[in-house]
C-alpha cells in the first residue's frame, strides 16, 4: 500500500481507481477494461508529472521528509561497495546520526559520510532522527582527516533537520564541533562532493556540506532554519510554516539561482520515494561527474577553488 502526501490526493484517487480496474481485469474481463486501464494509467501519470513539476516549497518540504525517500543507508548499499561504517570520535563516543567510513564508489576508493534518519521507529530512535551530537561531527572530522592523509575523495550525503539541540550536546560543545567540521571540509586537500538528498538543515548540514561541488536532489530542501522554526520565531506562529517556506527560498531551484549549489539532480516522476533505485542511480551519476571534474587537481588548488567558491557566494546577486 502506497502512502500519499496530502497534496497527492488527486493522484491517489486515480491510482486507487486503477487498482480496482486491475483487480477486475485479473478476474477475467480483460478485454473490456484494457483500454480503460491504459487511459487511466496515462491520466495518473500526467497528473503526477503535473503535480511534481509545480510543487510549492512547503510541498517540497514534505517530499524531502517523506518516510520512504531513500536515506543514507540506502545510498550506501546501492551506490557503494566495501563500505564499513567506522565508529567513534576517539574523544567521547559514537554518534549514530552521522555514519561514515571507507568505501568503493564505481571502482574508486572514497570516504563516505552522511546523516542517517532511520526508517522505522526503532532505527529512527537509534539514529536520533538524523540529528547529530558533537560526537557525530567530531567523527566526521576524524574521517575527513583520514581521507586527506590517504588521498581519498570525500562524498557527503546530507539529510538532517539540524544538529541535536540537547543539554548533553551543548555540554560537549555542539557549536564548536560544527565549526571544526566546516573548517575540516575547507582544509581538505582532496576533492569533496556533497549531495543534499533530503533535508539540509542549517549548521547541522553545512558542517559536512562545505564542498568543492554541492549538489541537490530536485525535491530536497536546504535552509538556514526549518520552515516551522522560522514561523515560530519570525511570525510567532508555527501555523505560518508554509509562508516561511515560501519566503526563505529553500528549494534546489532557488538555490541554483542564487549560485549556492552547483547543480540539481532530477528525480523520477513523483519523487525519489516512487523509484528509489532510479533516484539513487541518477545521484551516483552526478557524483561521478562531479568527481571527474575535480580529478587531477593538486591539494592546494582544491583548497583554493573551494575557498574562492564560497567567498564568491552572494557577491554577484
Amino acid at each position: 500500500m502506497r502512502s500519499y502526501l496530502d497534496f497527492e490526493k488527486p493522484v491517489a484517487e486515480l491510482e486507487a481507481k486503477l487498482e480496482e480496474l486491475r483487480a477486475m481485469a485479473a478476474q477475467g474481463d480483460a478485454v473490456a477494461i484494457g483500454d480503460d486501464i491504459a487511459r487511466l494509467e496515462g491520466k495518473a501519470r500526467d497528473a503526477l508529472l503535473q503535480l511534481y513539476a509545480n510543487l510549492s516549497p512547503s510541498q517540497k518540504t514534505q517530499v524531502a521528509r517523506h518516510p520512504l525517500r531513500p536515506h543514507f543507508s540506502d545510498y550506501a548499499s546501492a551506490l557503494f561497495e566495501e563500505f564499513d561504517p567506522l565508529a567513534g570520535d576517539r574523544k567521547f563516543g559514537d554518534d549514530h546520526a552521522i555514519l561514515g567510513g571507507l568505501a568503493r564508489f564505481r571502482g574508486r576508493a572514497v570516504c563516505l559520510i552522511g546523516q542517517e534518519k532511520g526508517s522505522s521507529t526503532e532505527t529512527r530512535i537509534k539514529h536520533n532522527f538524523g540529528m547529530a551530537r558533537p560526537e557525530g561531527y567530531r567523527k566526521a572530522v576524524r574521517l575527513m582527516e583520514l581521507a586527506d592523509r590517504f588521498s581519498l575523495p570525500v562524498i557527503s550525503l546530507v539529510d538532517t533537520a539540524g544538529a541535536f539541540p540537547g543539554l548533553d550536546a551543548e555540554e560537549r560543545g555542539q557549536a564548536e564541533a560544527i565549526a571544526r567540521s566546516t573548517d575540516a571540509c575547507l582544509s581538505l586537500g582532496v576533492p569533496n562532493v556533497a549531495v543534499i538528498i533530503g533535508e539540509g538543515g542549517s549548521g547541522g548540514a553545512i558542517a559536512i556540506a562545505t564542498a568543492n561541488r554541492v549538489l541537490m536532489l530536485e525535491h530536497s530542501i536546504y535552509s538556514v532554519i526549518s520552515p516551522e522554526g522560522a514561523a515560530s520565531i519570525l511570525w510567532r506562529d508555527t501555523a505560518k510554516a508554509q509562508e516561511a517556506a515560501m519566503n526563505m527560498k529553500i528549494t534546489a531551484q532557488d538555490l541554483l539561482r542564487f549560485h549556492v549549489i552547483d547543480s540539481v539532480i532530477p528525480e523520477p516522476p513523483g519523487g525519489a520515494h516512487r523509484d528509489p533505485e532510479a533516484a539513487m542511480r541518477a545521484t551516483g551519476d552526478a557524483i561521478e561527474a562531479a568527481l571527474g571534474e575535480l580529478d587531477g587537481l593538486e591539494p592546494a588548488a582544491l583548497r583554493k577553488a573551494r575557498r574562492e567558491k564560497f567567498l564568491a557566494i552572494g557577491r554577484n546577486l
Binding site: 565549526a179 575547507l186 549548521g203 535552509s223 538556514v224 519570525l234 529553500i250 564560497f310 557566494i313
Partner: peptide, 23 residues
Amino acid sequence: GARMQEGILSLMQMPRTTCAIQE
C-alpha cells in the same frame, strides 16, 4: 545567530567566515 530573513545566504556566512579565518 543567523539572519533568517536572508535564508541560505546567511547560512553561507558560516563557511565564508571560516575561509577568511584559514587565511
